[in-house]
Amino acid sequence: MPGKVLVVDDATFMRAMIKDILTANGYEVVGEATNGVEALVRYEELRPDLVTMDITMPEMDGVTAVKQLMSRYPDAKIIMVSAMGQQALVVDAIQAGAKDFVVKPFDVNRFLEAVRRAMG
């Protein structure tokens, strides 16, 4: 199922990679954001079907962004893109309403599976 995705990550490299993976698999990356604040703005403006959210970012971290997004848009579908060692933060994010998470370096298929399920 095609869908519009907002990719949030402060690393250009990660954004490019996630975007390539998604695009190659029929998803449309409608926007990118480099921190939580930007993510909120972009979400408001783009209303994507899914958000991939990095956790550690300047300005506003991913977990806070999830909390704020969920309070404004309870239907928001968010997948956390976490690094190793951030268990507690991922748990926070899921408690706040994130649908799923993947851990960097992630397996492409697993990532796509998470995307598919979260959208489903």
């Binding site: 390539d20 190659a24 990118e32 598919r116």
Partner: peptide
């Protein structure tokens, strides 16, 4: 099942928003 889904490598020429 955890079957691979789709090619694992991104195609060239993916659009950039930057």
């Amino acid at each position: 099942s955890q079957e691979p889904r789709g090619p694992s490598r991104a195609p060239e020429g993916a659009q950039r928003v930057n």
